[in-house]
């Protein structure tokens, strides 16, 4: 058939739909998980009224958000105010296309995969800045200022900890990184372990999760940068936050926890349907394991103070990750991988 659509285009559209659908489903599940886990940590059942065990609560909340009027404050910069939620939501979804969910489940295997994700993740801070600035609210502005200082500082150790892996593998390509960890996950090496810890801490800060949720510190800044957002404007920030969490956990899984590889005795490396499903399961188990730890931390710890946050980054995390990187360089030179 000569008038058939090019297969590449079909593949692109289908994968885009799947990725967006996955991002929405992920947010819906995570909101519920967060509420339920938080409830059980706080010795209460969590949402219980809508649907069996409150399973439909998130769906109803989504409907409620969509039904609300999107108000723009009088003094706000209307265009920027409306642009910010989209700016916060789109980049993490776009970044999902290089994440290898299984050996064949990857939309595009870019040769600069890690860089691609990091550069898209960096757009998030722009969204927060735009939101805080355009709201014409002092609390929002404070939230935005905090977010910029925090994200710019924490991107450095984040990058340095991922460079450890890149240096080891010698490639930015996500599939190469996973392939290099066949039966030998980087988290089980001393340098990999340190890099993983640093990555996890900075990831919490990058996604603005407690104890680093300063841009939206409720007790200080009411709701921080999204104080003025109502309805789906707020909803998109929320979706963006949860997609960012997913992305952060997915990178951690890919770079440190062996990606879709199972433990050595359960490893399945084929490309068939069953093998792909098993690999997908392993990937999701690891991703949501990391996310659960993030939720657990959020509901346990108080919030750090702004100067402490930056001091911790510049005086502790960056020197350690630098040293870790140098150590990795030396070891990688002496002991070639494989």
């Amino acid at each position: 058939m000569s008038n058939a659509l090019p297969p590449d285009l079909i593949r692109l559209v289908v994968s885009l739909a799947v990725v967006v659908g996955f991002a929405f489903a992920n947010a819906a599940v995570l909101v519920l998980v967060e509420r339920k886990v938080c409830g059980h940590i706080q010795r209460r059942p969590g949402p219980f009224e809508v649907g069996p065990h409150g399973l439909l609560q998130t769906a109803i909340d989504g409907l409620k958000l969509m039904g609300k009027q999107i108000l723009v404050p009088d003094n706000a910069d209307t265009k920027l105010f409306r642009l910010a939620p989209i700016l916060s939501f789109v980049p993490p979804i776009a970044a999902l296309i290089v994440v290898p969910f299984a050996k064949v489940l990857q939309v595009r295997d870019l040769d600069i995969g890690v860089l691609f994700i990091l550069s898209l993740a960096a757009v998030n801070v722009l969204a927060i800045l735009v939101a805080g600035w355009s709201s014409a609210n002092k609390y929002s502005l404070f939230g935005a200022i905090r977010a910029v200082a925090q994200n710019v500082a924490y991107e450095i150790p984040l990058l340095l900890s991922l460079l450890v892996v890149v240096m080891w593998v010698g490639s930015f390509r996500m599939s190469d990184i996973v392939a290099a960890q066949d039966g030998f996950w980087f988290v089980f090496t001393p340098m990999g372990f340190v890099a993983f810890l640093i990555y996890f801490v900075t990831g919490l800060a990058e996604t603005n999760r407690a104890p680093f949720d300063l841009p939206e510190a409720e007790s200080e800044l009411t709701a921080g940068f999204h104080t003025e957002y109502a309805g789906m404007g707020f909803g998109l920030f929320f979706l963006g936050e949860y997609t960012n969490m997913l992305l952060m956990a997915a990178i951690a899984t890919t770079c440190f926890l062996g990606g879709w590889n199972g433990p050595w005795f359960l490893a399945v490396s084929g490309t068939g349907v069953v093998a792909t499903l098993i690999q997908l399961c392993w990937f999701l188990v690891k991703v949501y394991g990391i996310i659960l730890v993030m939720v657990w931390i959020r509901w346990t710890f108080p919030r750090v103070r702004f100067d402490q946050l930056l001091n911790f980054c510049w005086k502790v995390l960056i020197p350690i990750s630098m040293a870790n990187l140098v150590a990795t360089a030396v070891v990688a030179k002496l002991v070639p991988l494989g």
């Binding site: 706080q42 010795r43 949720d213 007790s219 959020r298 509901w299 346990t300 108080p302």
Partner: peptide
């Protein structure tokens, strides 16, 4: 007080 410091859980323990 702990809510002011950003810790959400202790209040539910103390309210218990």
């Amino acid at each position: 007080f702990l809510l002011d410091l950003g810790a959400f859980t202790p209040i539910l323990y103390s309210f218990d």
